[in-house]
Design a protein around this nucleic acid. Structure first.
Ligand SMILES: [Mn+2]
Ligand SMILES: [Mn+2]
Ligand SMILES: [Zn+2]
Ligand SMILES: [Zn+2]
Lengths: 138, 138
DNA sequence: TTCTTGACTTAGACAATGTCCAATGTAGGA
DNA sequence: TCCTACATTGGACATTGTCTAAGTCAAGAA
């Protein structure tokens, strides 16, 4: 993710060791870690990193649009580095696995004007729930 | 909500004063209170009701399908007595107001087989976000 | 009506997640 | 190399939710 580090430098961010390891943890497809999971993985590389620093960095990444927050249940928020391509989520009800999915069509299209209550709607998030192949097999 | 109390009695529930006031609080349209909001409103009628009792009663109502849990943000879960008619939610990004909405079409239809990763999908929840008329005017 | 009993409620400790702050450290420019 | 504004740290605190031991009571039995 030197791409990400490059963009952060362009924004005037100081490139500290802590921000580097958080950026490294948030790399890959279908990555949706909780803040504590990010902290644990970051601490494996930089043991003294503080929880508050991870929370700070994640909030900053979210506020500049490099990472999105995902709330699939009522538990901890998850942090998703796949912010460039709009997508939705498919969640296994049993094991909690989360996959990125790309539905066809405009999700706002299904909501008739009579059901908008005068709101100006900006977006729709869809969460699909089901059972993953592993859980179905077990 | 004597309908609800009747159904609870049929299930063998003991009809305590605490369960009655929780059922009374959970009455109406577009009702989506947090557990603490339910507790505050219940305590206005029955001051000694405990937080744990409200949590217990809400969990039981959810488990028997009389109430739905709604997580629109990463904060507290909300409890929705409109469990008989399937619906989705429209949330104001500024003030948090939540309205029930009824989109047309099957929300699962938009997800192609190639995007299902072998999951057996059981349902989809959609959260529309925007600005409500009051917040737009203010 | 009164009694009995197992289900229900209570208060508070504890857990999980997240926010905030004062003290300390340091990245990057001068 | 030195400065200093920005970043990090550790821990206190807040919010939301869970759990348990002890006390209470709804509803059927007698
Ligand atoms: Mn994702
Ligand atoms: Mn609703
Ligand atoms: Zn699974
Ligand atoms: Zn509003």
């Amino acid at each position: 993710m030197s791409d990400l580090l490059e963009r952060l430098r362009d924004r005037g961010w100081r490139l500290t060791a802590q921000r580097r390891v958080v950026a490294e943890v948030l790399d890959g497809d279908h990555v949706h870690y909780t803040a504590d999971e990010v902290h644990a993985r970051a601490a494996a590389r930089l043991p003294e990193i503080a929880r508050a620093t991870v929370y700070n960095t994640l909030s900053e990444l979210v506020s500049i649009g490099e990472v999105i927050e995902v709330s699939t249940d009522g538990r901890a928020k998850r942090y998703d580095p796949n912010a460039r391509h709009s997508h939705q989520h498919l969640v296994c009800s049993k094991c909690g696995t989360i996959r990125d999915v790309h539905p066809s069509g405009d999700p706002l299209a299904g909501l008739p004007e009579s059901e908008r209550f005068g709101f100006t709607i900006s977006d729709a998030t869809v969460t699909y729930r089901g059972t993953c192949p592993q859980c179905a097999a077990g």
